[in-house]
Amino acid sequence: MFASSRKSSLFSSLFQTPHIICRGSSRNRVISGSDIAASSKVSAQWTRLGLSEKKPQEQKPAYATSDQRMASLSELKEIFRKADAVCFDVDSTVIKEEGIDELAKFCGVGDAVAEMTRRAMGGSLTFRAALTERLALIRPTREQVQALITEHPPRLTEGIKELVHKLHQRNIQVFLISGGFHSIVEHVATQLDIPLTNIYANRLKFYFNGEYAGFDETQLTAESGGKGKVIGLLKEKYGFRKIVMVGDGATDMEACPPADGFIGFGGNVTRQQVKEKAKWYITDFEELLRELDSDSIKMNHNDIFY
């Protein structure tokens, strides 16, 4: 269970009025039959001359790196030490629990939601569909979410507070990217002195009477591959050259690329796939602290101090 804490100011996001977003239709170029015939004729002429038609190069995303090969362990450690930003998953990484499981237990449907989670992990559902089904079963009210955070706030994983502080000392920005809920992640960010603007997570919606009204499906974290899309957005928005993702799950590992490095974390739960495939796999944050400290010692020997 979470330890007790009361910070009612953290629940402002829960009271936002649900809004309607209108999507504009996309514009598609219409290709006529005459266009296709003309193109075929030109291609045939190139072929008769023994030449190859030059095809336009595929445009790479703005966040794509020049070298997408898998970094070695030593290279990954170097990337971590010199990163512009480090992004952390929240559930079972920054905190000990899975937020949606705790909310389900608090609302009395823990076992049923856990079973749905196991089925969803089989890959038969998209992330959005799985989230929709589980929340439809939980149907948390605004008061229940507030009570969960107030009575059983999330427990920080050992060493994370010190690690975030050390990263901030080195002017490395820290972001929280979660498939969980913004209201819970806000509480975590406040404990770690992370700006609330550095949170990317899902938002629950409620009717005026506090009843559950769904979740904001426009958030990048509400869709499959969302964490990678967030990292791509961060690179485009802030011009970061090196970003490292840290997390326990496959969705965290899949965010690299566009992340330049991934560090698997197994301090709270072991995901076998991540443990086997991650180039750098840790079970406590002390290892990352030691890596930063060793780098500081090397820098000090060169009369450069942080």
Rank of each mutant, 00 (worst) to 15 (best):
P154W: 00
H165Q: 14
D260K: 00
F208K: 15
Y281Q: 03
L233Q: 13
K235R: 12
F15E: 14
E115A: 09
S5V: 04
E58Q: 12
S294W: 15
H152C: 11
A37F: 12
V230F: 09
D111V: 01
I184E: 05
D111G: 00
T17N: 15
I149T: 02
G123A: 11
F181S: 00
I172P: 06
P195C: 05
I79R: 15
H152S: 10
V185E: 09
D89H: 05
D111E: 07
I172H: 08
A120P: 03
L131G: 00
G122K: 14
I304L: 11
D111K: 01
I231S: 02
A112R: 10
S25V: 00
G50D: 07
A129S: 12
G122Q: 12
E254D: 10
G214P: 13
G264P: 08
G267A: 12
S296Q: 15
L103R: 04
K235N: 06
T197R: 13
T117S: 04
L196I: 11
V113G: 10
A83C: 10
Q68K: 12
A213P: 11
W280M: 10
S5C: 05
F285S: 04
A83E: 06
E162D: 11
F80W: 13
G50K: 03
E211K: 15
G214T: 12
